[in-house]
Design a protein around this nucleic acid. Structure first.
Length: 448
RNA sequence: GGAGAGGUCGCCUAGAGGCCUAGGGCGCCGCACUGGAAAUGCGGUAUGGGGCAACCCAUCGAGGGUUCGAAUCCCUCCCUCUCCGCCA
C-alpha cells in the first residue's frame, strides 16, 4: 500500500494536503522525496559499476579463449579490475538496500489522499447521503403501524433488543459458544443457523445472477505475503488470529484472499472490470474493543460476510464505487431494513481509502444505527503494493488497476436488525420475504 | 508425512561455468507477396528500475553461497507432478 514515488514527485502538494486532511504526518512526504533522490543517485553509481564489472568479466573469458594463460598476468589484471568493482558494488548495494528500506517505510506511512469530494474533518464532518425506510421506534404506539385498538398515544408494546428476541426464539447460544471457543464466538441453532445460511445464499444469488459478480469461495486462511498485500500486516496485525505453527492468518474479511487472487498479475485490455462476490467467515480479535458493543452479536470474533471485490480501470472506478454501494443498498431494501448511507470524512475513513461509504442499518430494539457495510475505493493504492496491473490497449505498457471493495453484506448485524425490526409483541419474528423459501417459514416462533 | 521427478519469455521447449546479448517452436502484432485470404518470407513480441537520450542495471520459482564470471555448481525454502502412507 502506498502512494507511488512517481506521484510523490509529480504532485507532492496533493499528497501533503491529503496527509494533513487525514490527520497524518505530512513531513514524511519530504523525507520520502529526499530518500528517493538519494536512492536514484546511488543506483546510478552502482549500475555503472555493475556494467563495468560485467564487461571486465566478459573480457576474462574472451582473453582465456583467445589463448591467454588462465593464471597469467593479463588475466590477473582483468580479474583484479572486476574484483575491485565488485567490492564497491557490495558496499553500494548495502547502502541502496538501506535507503530503499527507509523509503519503503516512509511511503507506508503516507496515507492515500482522499478524493476531492470527500468532506474534510473528523466523524462529525461525515455526511448522511441518504436514508431509506421507516425508522421504527422502540416503543410502539397503540395506533402504530402494527398497533392494536388501544387508546391513541398509549404504548402498546416495546421492542426488545435482538439478544432478548433471540433468547426467546432459542436461536443463539452465546454461553455455549463461549464454552467451546470463547466469548465472541456465537453458536447459531436451528432457525438461527438457517437464517445465516439463507442470508448468505440470498446475497450471493443476487450478486451472481443479477449483478454480474463471479462467485469466489476463498480459503479462510492466507499466508504472510497475502496479509501484507492488503495491508493487514504490519498495520493491523493485532487484529488477526495467527496460526504461528504454519505461518497462516485467519482472514478478517474475504477482501484479503480475493484481492490477492490477482497479486502480481496483469489484466489484458478488455478484461476489466473483474467483479467478485465472496462469502467467508471473518475472524477478528477486536483487541482493544473490550466492553464496546459486546452485547449480543454486535461485535464478535467470528462473523460471516459476503464481500464484493472490484478491479476497475481508473476511468471507471468512481462510478463503480457508487454502483457497488447501490448493490449493497438493494439487499437492505429487499430485506425491508431501514438504513442510511454515510460518506465518511477524511479523518473517519481510514488510512488507505480514497473514498468510503458506510451503510448503517436501523436497529429499533436498541434504537441505534449498526454498520453493516463499508464500501471503499482505494484507487491505485492497494494495487501498487500488490502489483495488480492492466494493459489499457493491446501491447501497451501496463498500468495499475483501481481496486474497490465493500460488504454485501455482513451477517451478524443484519440478523440483529431483522430480529429487532420484524419482532412481534408475542415474541415471534416475521421472516423477510426473500428468505422465506430458503428458510421454509414465514414466521419464527418461540418454542411452545 | 515418506520416496522420486520437475519449476526457463503468453504457451511448449533447448540449455550442464564464459559462444546466453537465454536459442527454437507455437501464439500474437506489423510489413511484403495477394483481387482478398491461406501458405510463405522479413521484422517485432517480458517485467521492474535508472537515464533527456544512446543506452545501462536487475530478474531463468524465492532467498543465500561459491566464482573474475551462475539459468548452469552448493545450501535453505516454496510450489507442481508421480508413487506410497494417512484421511473428510
Amino acid at each position: 500500500m502506498s502512494v507511488g514515488v512517481q506521484r510523490l514527485r509529480d504532485e507532492p502538494d496533493v499528497i501533503r494536503r491529503g496527509a494533513l486532511d487525514k490527520g497524518e504526518d505530512a513531513t514524511l512526504v519530504d523525507t520520502a522525496l529526499a530518500l528517493d533522490a538519494r536512492r536514484r543517485a546511488l543506483l546510478g553509481e552502482a549500475d555503472a559499476l555493475k556494467a563495468e564489472r560485467n564487461s571486465a568479466s566478459k573480457r576474462v573469458g574472451v582473453a582465456i579463449q583467445a589463448g591467454a594463460a588462465p593464471n597469467g598476468p593479463e588475466v590477473a589484471a582483468l580479474r583484479a579490475a572486476s574484483v575491485a568493482a565488485g567490492e564497491r558494488i557490495a558496499a553500494l548495494d548495502v547502502a541502496i538496500g538501506r535507503v530503499e528500506a527507509e523509503l519503503e517505510d516512509a511511503l507506508l506511512r503516507i496515507p492515500n489522499p482522499a478524493d476531492p469530494d470527500v468532506p474534510v474533518g473528523d466523524a462529525s464532518a461525515s455526511v448522511t447521503v441518504r436514508t431509506w425506510g421507516d425508522l421504527l421506534p422502540r416503543a410502539m404506539p397503540a395506533s402504530g403501524p402494527r398497533g392494536t385498538d388501544a387508546g391513541a398515544g398509549a404504548t402498546a408494546w416495546e421492542r426488545r433488543p435482538h439478544w432478548d428476541v433471540a433468547q426467546r426464539l432459542g436461536i443463539f447460544e452465546l454461553e455455549r459458544g463461549a464454552k467451546i471457543a470463547g466469548s465472541g464466538f456465537p453458536v447459531y441453532r436451528g432457525a438461527g443457523a438457517g437464517l445465516q445460511r439463507a442470508l448468505i445464499d440470498f446475497f450471493l444469488t443476487v450478486h451472481t445472477r443479477e449483478n454480474g459478480f463471479t462467485e469466489i469461495w476463498p480459503p479462510a486462511v492466507v499466508n504472510a505475503a497475502s496479509a501484507r498485500g492488503t495491508g493487514q500486516i504490519p498495520d493491523k496485525e493485532d487484529q488477526m488470529y495467527v496460526v504461528t505453527r504454519d505461518e497462516l492468518y485467519l482472514v478478517p474479511t474475504a477482501e484479503v484472499p480475493v484481492t490477492n487472487l490477482h497479486r502480481d498479475e496483469i489484466f489484458e485490455a478488455g478484461e476489466l472490470p473483474v467483479r467478485y462476490a465472496a462469502y467467508s467467515p471473518c475472524f477478528r480479535r477486536e483487541a482493544g474493543a473490550a466492553g464496546k458493543d459486546t452485547r449480543g452479536i454486535l461485535r464478535v470474533h467470528q462473523f460471516d460476510k459476503v464481500e464484493m471485490v472490484l478491479f476497475e480501470t481508473p476511468e471507471a472506478s468512481a462510478a463503480a464505487l457508487e454502483w457497488m454501494v447501490g448493490r449493497a443498498e438493494d439487499l437492505l431494501r429487499r430485506l425491508g431494513l431501514a438504513y442510511r448511507v454515510l460518506l465518511m470524512a477524511t479523518r473517519d475513513m481510514g488510512f488507505v481509502q480514497a473514498k468510503k461509504y458506510d451503510l448503517e442499518v436501523w436497529a429499533p430494539g436498541v434504537e441505534r444505527w449498526l454498520e453493516v457495510s463499508s464500501c471503499s475505493s482505494f484507487r491505485d493504492y492497494q494495487a501498487r503494493r500488490m502489483a495488480i496491473r492492466y494493459r489499457p490497449a493491446p501491447g501497451a505498457r501496463p498500468e495499475l488497476v483501481h481496486t474497490l471493495n465493500g460488504s454485501g453484506l455482513a451477517l451478524a448485524r443484519v440478523v440483529a436488525a431483522i430480529l429487532e425490526t420484524y419482532q412481534e409483541p408475542d415474541g415471534s419474528v416475521r421472516v423477510p420475504e426473500p428468505l422465506r423459501a430458503s428458510l421454509g417459514a414465514d414466521v419464527l416462533r418461540p418454542p411452545a
